[in-house]
Design a protein around this nucleic acid. Structure first.
Length: 652
RNA sequence: GCUGCUGUAGCUCAGAGGUAGAGCACUCCCUUGGUAAGGGAGAGGUCGAGAGUUCGAUUCUCUCCAGCAGCACCA
């Protein structure tokens, strides 16, 4: 606090402090430093808070003045103001449109509108044009703090019902800031640029139109959302658009077709028809996982697909997830009613059944049970996405039955297991989220307190850093979620580690303790890949189809240059196959250019070309995917090298 | 599930109220070649399904199915 209430002391990033009159604005501070800074200033950070140039500062504070060179703040202001400019453009073109909210998001912003007519892709061009006009007007931005009733009356009079509802939702002690540029008005807490002309008119683009529920609530009005992206300069916009093109090239649905991995069709929406190439990847990955989990002390089991509703009622899933289960009704002879079964949407209740067979001793704990569990879930049609979100999938599922004391060691062991798998599969980096009790949950508060702290203690003991994710736990218990980062920076949640005190209780799992009495085990649900389908999708996109050699479905094509080489080509293929390499011959009557192109497009990692020279010298010419350079090697050397490359990382 | 868009040859896409098109892929022929498409010929379609309007619908309208984008959902 300043001693004199008339002045405040502002400390700059270099550590120097200066005194100003209380109520000084960052604009004035910047002007006081230099006229050039006054011109370039766009906002400030005051005690860690992003601050509008026109907002008064009434207490001592740390201050930093921002210019367009401060990427983070500049992007925030540009995207934010573009949201307002877009909303104005839309209301100028279609005055009946009601405005709602328009926040800044990664790379841009969106704004939700209520308008009877749907927007069309052509409308985006119109809106962009209008936005550029608004930017060129260089309308000054002004804001005022209003009291609640005045703002509510204002929006009621202007027939903007969504704004009235927004105000009602803002906590009573927060000031309401009204925003204008030109005659156009919005409700917004800011901060903002000083006039619309500060927005770079050539560095934004409207991307798409989509529906979105008012306030994210599926029981409420569907609005129309327009997405835009914006940056501080047009080169950055270009780079972003280029990145999107690159991402589209990696789309697993496209690559899956081009590499002949799988297909999907109308008769089985959300389910995968694996082709030989794709199934090779799948089984190679599954064989790897089977070896890894065996080494980590898991016992593999396999449980039924079709299970009577009685078990799902007992587990609680019937109540909670009936809508999302595939139901199988069977007319049984002599039975009074049809038997009603569900395809298993998960493996845990079945695993408890395996656990429950025979009496278990504390000596058997921790009991690690694993299954490549084939599950079916009737996912909402709109959720389906290639092989990433499907209705039929296989989890690398596992359940650890253990005592509370064992949670910590199991957590540590799982983390080791998971890191080594991710590393082998080409993902060096992953993030850990600690998700705590959600709103809808079962179990007492005391039990949640207890289990959450046990899990937090376990993750802390491993020394890994983690991020708290409040309210995102499973309905039965807290969990750790593992998010890996792919080659183009996208995050994918794959692994999970969940503590469940609930299901053993519901399904009556017990073990005999040291004391001779029955005790309730904890159940840890855990998965590393999540599902094979989704993980393979991620692998394809991460590697842009160029899978690591050991996972590549077609590893080597031996291509003849002249048909005189055919016999030798076949010999090379047989030699490679005997050495454990997936090799095939291409002795078609085509030119080598044609063969090279076709197999490059098909993402075959190694092409061995064979002509007269190679036949005579018993060599091959090696061409690796993505490299123009070729290399002549003896058949023996190549066989050794490729045989090594074809060996899964855990067997090296 | 909701909003919007889309559905034509194996793939990518053009087309129009009146006998359905291209490129690539496929089959055959010629070509035997040196690292990302050699030449020629041929075959290939219930225009997603059903109903309606019309003399006539693949085209217009409606319903359904599937896909795409986003939202909601994700045990």
């Amino acid at each position: 606090m300043a001693l004199d209430s008339q002045s405040v002391s502002l400390t700059f990033p270099d550590g120097n402090a200066r005194s100003f009159d209380a109520g000084v604005t960052p604009a004035q501070v910047a002007a006081d430093i230099s006229t050039s800074l006054a011109k370039k200033a766009i906002s400030a950070t005051v005690d860690g808070q992003h601050w509008d140039l026109q907002w008064p500062i009434n207490a001592d504070a740390q201050i930093a003045i921002h210019t367009m060179k401060d990427e983070v703040q500049a992007n925030e202001l540009i995207r934010h103001d573009l949201a307002h400019i877009m909303a104005r453009a839309v209301q100028e073109i279609w005055p009946d449109t009601k405005v709602t909210i328009g926040p800044v998001i990664e790379n841009g912003w969106y704004y939700d509108f209520d308008r009877a007519e749907p927007f069309t892709p052509e409308d985006l061009g119109l809106i962009e044009k209008k936005m550029k006009e608004i930017i060129n007007k260089r309308d000054a931005v002004t804001t005022e703090v209003w009291d609640r009733q005045r703002a509510i009356d204002f929006y009621t009079a202007n027939d903007e019902p969504y704004k009235v509802e927004l105000i009602d939702a803002i906590p009573g002690d927060e000031p309401l800031r009204m925003y204008w540029h030109g005659d156009w008005q919005d409700l917004c807490r800011g901060p903002h640029l000083q006039h619309t002309g500060q927005v770079p008119g050539d560095a934004f683009k409207l991307m798409s139109i989509a529906g979105a529920y008012w306030r994210g609530d599926s029981s409420r009005q569907m609005l129309q959302r327009i997405y835009g992206v914006a940056f501080t300069g047009k080169e950055k916009l270009k780079a972003h658009l280029h990145m999107l093109e690159e991402a589209a090239k990696r789309d697993h649905r496209k690559l899956g077709r081009e590499m002949n991995l799988f297909h999907m069709q109308e008769e089985a929406p959300g389910q995968v028809f694996w082709h030989p190439n794709g199934w090779t990847v799948y089984t190679e990955l599954q064989d790897y996982m089977r070896r890894k989990q065996r080494a980590a002390g898991y016992k593999e089991v396999n449980t039924p697909q079709v299970v009577d509703r009685k078990l799902w009622e007992a587990s609680g899933h019937w109540d909670k997830y009936q809508e999302h289960m595939f139901i199988v009704e069977v007319d049984e002879e002599h039975a009074r009613e049809k038997s009603i079964n569900a395809l298993k949407p998960m493996n845990c209740p079945c695993h408890v059944q395996v656990f429950n067979q025979g009496l278990k001793s504390y000596r058997e704990l921790p009991l690690r049970m694993a299954e490549f569990g084939s599950c079916s879930r009737y996912e909402p049609s709109g959720a389906l996405h290639g092989i990433m979100r499907v209705r039929g999938f296989t989890q690398d599922d596992g359940h650890i039955f253990c005592t509370e004391d064992q949670i910590e060691a199991e957590c540590a062991a799982f983390l080791d297991y998971l890191s080594s798998v991710y590393k082998d599969l080409g993902f060096e980096k992953f993030e850990i989220m600690f998700a705590t009790r959600p709103e809808k949950r079962v179990g007492s508060e005391e039990s949640w307190d207890h289990v959450e702290s046990a899990l937090e203690k376990a993750i802390k003991a491993t020394g890994h850093s983690y991020t708290l994710d409040p309210g995102e736990g499973a309905f039965y218990g807290p969990k750790l979620d593992f998010k890996l980062t792919d080659a183009i920076g996208r995050e994918w949640q794959c692994g999970t580690f969940q503590v469940d005190p609930n299901l053993p209780e519901r399904l009556g799992a017990t073990y005999i303790g040291e004391d001779g009495a029955k005790h309730r085990p904890y159940m840890l649900h855990r998965a590393c890949l999540g599902s094979f389908e989704r993980f393979i999708g991620i692998l394809i996109e991460n590697h842009a189809g160029k899978l690591p050699f050991w996972l590549a479905p077609r590893q080597v094509v031996v291509a003849s240059i002249t048909s005189d080489a055919d016999d030798y080509v076949n010999e090379v293929v047989e030699t490679l196959k005997a050495a454990g390499v997936r090799a095939e011959a291409d002795i078609r009557n085509e030119k080598i250019n044609y063969k090279v192109r076709e197999h490059s497009v098909g993402k075959v990692p190694v092409i061995l070309a064979v002509g007269h020279r190679e036949v005579e010298e018993r060599t091959v010419t090696v061409r690796r995917l993505g490299e123009k350079q070729t290399q002549v090697q003896s058949l023996e050397a190549v066989t050794n090298e490729l045989s090594q490359a074809a060996t899964p990382p855990d067997l090296l």
